[in-house]
Nucleic acid binder design. Structure first.
Lengths: 226, 226
DNA sequence: TTAATTTGTAACAAAATTGTAACATTTGAA
DNA sequence: TTCAAATGTTACAATTTTGTTACAAATTAA
């Protein structure tokens, strides 16, 4: 069993217990003690599954869940909700907000483990498109779409391939020759300056207002994401 | 998915939730809040499947189940029993009374749906037509019909196969080659441009007025639903 | 059989993409 | 600071890709 699991839960003892046991089972685990932190951390951590407490000090689990579903890159993130006993009638709301499964506290770790496995198995490999992500950028290779923070960015074919190429190794600086070899079809001959123009086009599309520059020019070396 | 489902369950919130979601998935649903009413309604409704609560105000789920099995017309009616947590050890008794599957509350709707499909498929493979849905579009593979928001759309054979193919993985972008391989009979040789023409024909049929475009062109890559 | 429908292709129209040149601006070394 | 090299920017024509239509051949229904 492998995969990354994120926990949002305000009870430290539960976090400790669950995290420890999950890690013993080969998962990579991270966690937050409240909703707002959780939502931020989530993006950095890019988990394969989320364990979400129902009652949190700031946001409710429901609110978090709805929030998550709005985010394109987490549209398919499986969520298991942890509810305390007696909150059961609220379940209706929970199901509509897109929770995949429930677990009522107190629960045994085996029980949790079984649910996690089931949910991960269920999260259909077909629907999980392999996305490339970097910062607030997301490129969906299956659907051929690019988003920056949920806002779709329309790219031409070459711009798309160019961005896709950079995203396979973000931060790495590529020379114009390397870019040509990888992004252009073999045995085409284009001026290396052509890349500059395409970089400009990509920049124009990707650099939405209020967003920081994503493509760095490294003088005399090439370009990279940053 | 179609079929008639009857629910006997004394908790109105659960009925509401389940009924609403099942109907959204194309089932016809009726319900009763107690065992005696349920048994009567059942005969009128003639369901294809019964969701049965374990603990009811008058009769227990077990008793109802045994009762049903005596009736010749319901001898093979599939039953899924809903049990509350903690009644688990009683399951053994349940199995003897002819229940087809169990679900422990609380359960997610996805879980319920999966069980329903499984049980229906097992008991009556013919009545379970597996429909493909996307947005307001519905394609019935059994009856070979297509609807958009209840309005039937007449398609030619190739258009039908084409749409069917797209619906197995909506949003995913397929190249013309992939489309050719999957939609056309093997070893036929048709120009790849032929697809464009069929796409146009499909678009013309599927894009009713006041409806948004359903087929996306991804330049230099192919087509997808959107 | 005849009539209707479906299908593939060619031909042209429309739209989007691409490469390059030409000029502007920035950068960093001397 | 000065200047040459590197990069940014723009406009545009050529090319590629897709949309659309018409039509004849093939298939199916009546």
């Amino acid at each position: 069993m492998n995969g990354k699991i994120f926990i949002i839960e305000d009870e430290p003892s539960i976090i400790q217990l669950v995290q420890h046991n999950l890690e013993k089972n080969g998962f990579i685990v991270s966690s937050s003690l409240n909703g707002n932190d959780g939502l931020k951390e989530l993006k950095k951590f890019q988990p394969d599954l989320l364990l979400l407490d129902w009652m949190l000090p700031d946001l409710s689990g429901i609110e978090i869940c709805k929030n998550i579903r709005k985010d394109n890159s987490f549209k398919n993130l499986p969520v298991i909700m942890l509810t305390a006993k007696g909150e059961e009638e609220d379940k209706i709301k929970g199901l509509d907000s897109g929770v995949d499964d429930y677990l009522t506290k107190p629960f045994s770790f085996n029980e949790l483990m079984a649910r996690i496995k089931a949910v991960l198995r269920r999260s259909n490999p077909n629907t999980v498109s392999d996305n490339l992500k970097f910062d607030d950028l997301m490129l969906d290779r299956i659907e051929k779409r690019v988003f920056r923070d949920d806002q779709e960015i329309k790219l031409g074919p070459t711009e798309f391939r160019l961005l896709e190429f950079f995203l396979t190794n973000p931060k790495r600086v590529y020379s114009r020759d390397q870019i040509l070899e990888s992004v252009w079809p073999n045995n085409v001959n284009v001026e290396s300056r052509t890349i500059d123009v395409h970089i400009r086009r990509l920049r124009q599309s990707v650099n939405l207002k209020n967003k920081k520059e994503l493509i760095r020019t490294v003088r005399s070396s090439g370009y990279s994401l940053i």
